[in-house]
Design a protein around this nucleic acid. Structure first.
Lengths: 157, 157
DNA sequence: GTCATTTTGTTTCCTTGTCAACAAAATTTA
DNA sequence: TAAATTTTGTTGACAAGGAAACAAAATGAC
């Protein structure tokens, strides 16, 4: 296996581990909320124009799936929907007070993860971060172009 | 958002894009086989001691899920199971001739992906690959230790 | 303006994977 | 060795997400 593949599959494995480990932790602090629900809450908290379509694109999921998650979050009273006066089709979401509370717990948890992994991040130099950032961005743009080429066309963000 | 988070979430997004795009391509060349099936075939092709437990650990999935995928692959005649004379419990898998064929198509596809993304990889220096590798490995080991700490204990590979 | 096309969100049906319970074999403990 | 525990794989019930079909609104073509 060459280095490209090693790095890519290394990152995949790393990502899987993070998901797996953080999920365990989240089940304790955020009992009763699924990871996907919490992720949607996070996104809605950050984006004032969050709707089903935007969420679906961001998470590489179908509108169908997001629609169901949103429904559940509304039933739980964690988000509420609203419309813009000039548009009767698009439905936006925002966090309720209880949703904000969940979001804060989630943020707190993120800080704990950051703290937990501090030792790994510390020795990385500014220059190294920048290199990795540039690599990721370039690869990402390359794939966007590739998707367009292929006619698939789905450009999130 | 700080650089650590940017890099991590950048990689997550990159990974999602890769999965999404490659899935489209695989549906063409490997019609009739799900990604998870193809991944299992790949692993079985590479590991002579592949069994349900090893596959589950590698893919961060439950034994239950793998058991079902394996069942399907056996029905399709892509893999076959065998036992070691000194152990009546563990069941190992190997590829059939048809499984090998699927595996070769998959490998070919991987070469195409590599070719497709060549332009992104070329400007990365040997030193940069090594840096990224070291980062991934260190982080990975850190998380392994963390899992053990937490008593979760699941150390793949 | 009107008609066709696209966008947005929802619902139904189906597939995939998890969870829990289980049986059988292996391993550990005594 | 015998009994308790762990490991391995399977099954059935359930939940999450995808695909397709759909309705309603928005946009575009004319």
């Amino acid at each position: 296996m060459n280095k490209e593949d090693q790095v890519i599959s290394g990152f995949r494995d790393l990502y899987n581990k993070l998901v797996w480990l953080n999920k365990s932790k989240m089940e304790v602090s955020l009992k009763g909320h699924k990871p996907s629900e919490v992720h949607c809450i996070e996104y809605i908290g950050k984006h004032a124009d969050a709707n089903v379509t935007k969420l679906a694109e961001h998470f590489y999921m179908t509108r169908s799936a997001i629609s169901k998650i949103a429904k559940k979050l509304m039933e739980k009273g964690l988000i509420e929907s609203f419309q813009r006066p000039d548009n009767k089709k698009e439905i936006y979401f925002k966090l309720t007070e209880r949703g904000e509370a969940v979001n804060r717990i989630h943020e707190q948890l993120h800080n704990e993860f950051r703290e937990r992994d501090k030792a790994v991040f510390e020795p990385i130099t500014e220059a190294q971060w920048d290199q990795m950032m540039r690599f990721v961005e370039r690869y990402s743009r390359h794939l966007d172009a590739e998707m367009k080429n292929q006619g698939v066309d789905r450009t999130p963000e």
